[in-house]
């Protein structure tokens, strides 16, 4: 089930490509990278529970700069995961997104956010095992890592697909929702949002890969 290809960019053994489907994802990711570049962070209002009191919280400049760097890098890594035409390269991009997602919230001074980020970090580290194992099993059983060749030849074992899926779910933390929900409490809106953008797009891309190969 290979869609028609719009663009190809060859880099040695890896041929990056855009189809209609990944083109949409690419455009979406590009918009959010642009938004992370140009928009300033929010100034969240915190309400004091049970009273009328509230306080305005500003994101410190150094933290905002760091978060912006991480968010932009995360967006670029997401674009990389979307356009890549090589399974192993895709797994690396997935791991990259996982690391950057921790990075976006790592510098927030909030105990809840940090402990959620730490748990998430552990899941990200574990996620690399099924990811790399999945890619390696694909290479061993088919003799190639290129999504094009796999789409033509097929024969990828189900276990490899499952491992790839659970690996991506770990990196993007899709159904392991609670950690991500806690992470969202951190302030700094356009950057925090990139965590969701990257993990959703990563998930959409892996679905396409699993249906293609």
């Amino acid at each position: 089930m290979m869609e028609s290809i719009l663009v190809t960019i060859p880099f040695g053994d890896m041929i990056h490509y855009l189809s209609g489907y990944t083109g949409v994802l690419f455009g979406f990711a590009a918009v959010f990278v642009l938004l992370a570049v140009i928009s300033l962070p929010e100034k969240p209002v915190e309400i004091v529970f049970g009273t009328d009191g509230y306080s305005l919280k500003e994101t410190p400049v150094d933290l905002a700069k760091f978060q912006r760097f991480m968010a932009i890098a995360c967006g670029i890594a997401t674009i990389g995961a979307i356009v890549t035409g090589d399974i192993f390269n895709f797994t690396l991009f997935a791991a990259f997104i996982g690391v950057l997602n921790i990075g976006i919230v790592a510098a927030v001074k909030n105990k809840h956010v940090l402990s959620a980020a730490f748990s998430y970090g552990l899941v990200v580290m574990m996620g690399t095992v099924p990811l790399f194992a999945g890619a390696a099993i694909i290479a061993a059983t088919t003799g190639t890592l290129s999504i094009w060749e796999l789409a033509a030849a097929g024969g990828v074992p189900v276990i490899a697909k499952l491992l790839l899926l659970i690996g991506v779910l770990g990196e993007g933390m899709a159904p392991f929702y609670i950690g991500k929900a806690e992470i969202t409490r951190a302030s700094g809106a356009p950057y925090i949002l990139m965590i969701h953008v990257s993990s959703l797009l990563l998930f959409l891309r892996v679905v396409e890969i699993l249906l293609t190969v």
Partner: peptide, 10 residues
Amino acid sequence: AEIMAVSELW
């Protein structure tokens, strides 16, 4: 890389 970042986070 991951152990580096996560341990600092810890």
